[in-house]
Amino acid sequence: MTSTPRSPFRRAALAAAVATAALVLSACGGDAESASSGSASSGSSSSDDRHNAQDVTFAQGMIPHHRQALEMAELAADRASSAEVKDLAARIEKAQDPEIEKMTGWLKAWGEDVPEEGESMGESMPGMDHSGGSGMAGMMGDAEMQQLEKASGAAFDTAFLTMMVEHHEGAVEMARTEQSKGGYQPAKKTAGDIVTGQTAEITEMNELLGKSS
């Protein structure tokens, strides 16, 4: 049986229909791809990744604050007479050194300045008014650090505990400000860890001071 050839009109109509269908499918695919890429891009910018000025202030202040605590804790190895003070100092070093590294990483990722060794936040923010003359709550002044360096035995233990209580209280104050005003969730979590850990250590140190009095 011989097939009847299609007329030019039918062939043209069929070609037009195929072209139209291809265009529709292409448009639908493009819309879906755009929607997918838009959803992915919006999902990649989580609120947890956003930081504000308070987060920067917290990290730039807590780094030198922690560094001084480490400096004080290192003195305990040679000067403290109490095993409890030496143990506490070792725990302070173990907790705070990794936090310095963490906060340094945040500041570098944000394109912000990392405090230099020996630099306090008071040097970069002289308007801050806290005790100790360093610009931050709880920080020891040069005279107090020299006093601690010269002490040994039971006198060192008492001076260390007294100063570290004040130092921890300052850190807790700074951390609570971050908890209430910060925006970067990892920083707020670290602040919460500081509040919990150092508040417990304040209680411990006050009890040690009570035993020695």
Rank of each mutant, 00 (worst) to 15 (best):
T196F: 07
K189V: 09
A109E: 14
H168F: 08
D193N: 12
E207H: 05
G118N: 06
S152W: 04
L148K: 07
M136Y: 10
S134D: 08
G133A: 04
E116H: 15
M103I: 10
S180K: 11
T199W: 04
E119K: 02
T177D: 08
A109R: 06
M174W: 07
E116F: 15
S120T: 15
E117R: 14
G210H: 01
E144L: 06
M164W: 08
E201M: 01
A171R: 05
A187Q: 01
T203I: 09
K102C: 10
V195K: 01
S120C: 08
Q146R: 14
A143C: 10
V172N: 04
A187W: 00
L161Y: 04
S131V: 11
E101M: 15
I194R: 00
M164R: 04
D129L: 12
E207A: 13
G192M: 05
S131Q: 13
P126I: 00
H130Y: 14
H168P: 10
E207Q: 12
G133R: 02
T196E: 12
N206W: 05
G138E: 01
S152L: 03
A151N: 05
T199D: 11
E201D: 06
H130R: 11
V165Y: 04
L161F: 05
I194W: 01
G153M: 10
P126G: 00
D157E: 05
G141L: 08
D142E: 13
M121D: 06
Q179Y: 06
E116Y: 14
E178M: 00
N206G: 07
Q179W: 05
A200W: 11
V165A: 04
W110E: 04
E116V: 15
A137T: 05
T196Y: 08
E204V: 07
K188D: 03
Y184D: 10
M205K: 00
S131T: 14
G118L: 04
E123T: 15
E207I: 02
M140P: 09
A191L: 03
M121H: 03
E123K: 15
M128I: 08
E169I: 12
N206R: 12
T177K: 11
Q146N: 14
E207K: 06
T199S: 15
E123R: 13
G105C: 05
G132E: 04
D113M: 15
N206A: 07
K188Q: 05
P126D: 02
K150Q: 13
L209R: 03
W110G: 00
M145A: 12
E149L: 08
L148S: 08
A143N: 11
H130K: 11
I194Y: 02
T177A: 10
Q146W: 10
V195N: 03
M174R: 03
